[in-house]
Nucleic acid binder design. Sequence first.
DNA 1: CTAGGTCTGTTCGATAACGAACATATCTTC
DNA 2: GAAGATATGTTCGTTATCGAACAGACCTAG
Lengths: 280, 280
Amino acid sequence: MAVDKSSSTLVVRTGDTKLTAPPFRLSRKNIAAEPGVNHLLAALPPEIVGRIFPQLELVAMPLGHVLHESGGLLQHVYFPTTAIVSLHYILEDGASAEIAGVGNEGLIGLALIMGGNTTPSIASVITAGHGYRLKANLMLEEFNRGGPMMQLMLKYIQAMMTQISQTAVCNRRHSVEQQLCRWLLLTLDRLPSNELTMTQELIASMLGVRREGITETAGNLQREGLISYRRGHITVLNRKGLETHTCECYAVVKKEFQRLLHSPAAAPAPVRISVTNSYL
Amino acid sequence: MAVDKSSSTLVVRTGDTKLTAPPFRLSRKNIAAEPGVNHLLAALPPEIVGRIFPQLELVAMPLGHVLHESGGLLQHVYFPTTAIVSLHYILEDGASAEIAGVGNEGLIGLALIMGGNTTPSIASVITAGHGYRLKANLMLEEFNRGGPMMQLMLKYIQAMMTQISQTAVCNRRHSVEQQLCRWLLLTLDRLPSNELTMTQELIASMLGVRREGITETAGNLQREGLISYRRGHITVLNRKGLETHTCECYAVVKKEFQRLLHSPAAAPAPVRISVTNSYL
DNA sequence: CTAGGTCTGTTCGATAACGAACATATCTTC
DNA sequence: GAAGATATGTTCGTTATCGAACAGACCTAG
């Protein structure tokens, strides 16, 4: 994998005022610095927002940055706003296989909450961007209050279990093309535009297949007019088309996230960010 | 899959006294009725044992019995003692793929705790036996106390996430032989003897591969003297040998369960069952 | 604007697993 | 203990994916 892993996390701490009373006119420019772009943060009730938001740290999440090593202890949890992170496992032979992805719909660091503090898998940034992080002890403290934060986290954990389960199912039964389409759609849903900044090499590495397989499949999809790409960039031209090429796994995951985290019961009295969020 | 799904759950309610003060001399005959054979129940402190054990219902878990349908609401959680349950997903084309297995080390019904109340996957019995069940509301009540039950469940959830993750990884990268060995070992660890009662057909269905593939692989393993089998029964003759034939996935799962659920910190002041439990 | 590095395109034979078809063996039930 | 049902054995052609090797295209740093 040709991802740069040497870069370190750039900390960009923003003023507390801005964080607790975020501006509601969002331009593309400051989406990254808007906590509410992260769906979990957006779903928290005012009470928790008051306690937690002042403690959030805006951090740059550069491509390849490793948030969590296999077996490493978690110091923070991360709420991506514009970055996308992959949870994957590195095999003894050096190959890798993705377990799940995390973008602005979720958070990295569940093992902290669950008490294990670490996992055998790795979390690394596959689309550069930003996110907020929260110190481990603060997150744990809030979780252990047993209120809405706990309820929200438990539902998110279940949603993640479904995503991982479907990864397992998809890996077992579906073709590279179906899996690529699923992956593109899931990733697209985490981005504000229809363009992924991503090499075929990286995608192959995430899916745990050969790069040639991705080149060939992506070529087919391009020929069919569903996507277009150039070195390191993939633009989705026909979303519906991709959906017909993928397997049921995409919809299963999507529906469960919707059901668990976006139904009225899931987030009582949330801080609603009044931005048309096309990438929900 | 040729598993009988018509049989219904046989409820065998035992006296409260026996449950709260279990006999410590275990013969093979009454293992099934001993709550402490389930590791999670065994790890609960006396305080919770007092509240929960009188509410436990001993139930027969016949082969093929479905504990939870895709999308069905959970009425109980199940703690297997001698039964083994498979969590799997049925695809649109009717094929199936296992997500994880649950035996006396765990429980079925996490979606209840996490608040989703259901999952897209199915839970069905693949090795007949017994287990204890607890009404949904009682489990939830105990969990929401926020004490040791919650801590234990959170750790078990993390352990399950690791198991599911490794299923995904294994499905992606490893051969049928490696996967079969992993599966046999994981299943063996849930049983008191070295014999699995299980057809190749069922194993194939769980692994999501062809039955012929299992026949061929099992034949090889038998020729090498690692296992011996007859119609519907597989005996493991050389456990170490199987371990050398499997992939790293088995050890990863095993170690995480050990770390999360059997380290001293994981279960403070547990009710220890003084039985040499060769199968953990 | 050139050079080196990194991506992408393409080919080829190898191989693991598939799907279908059918033979044989083993259990169970009456 | 015979019949029917179910499990296992075996074969064969098919296919998706792999692994290796290399050519060409594209970016970006100097």
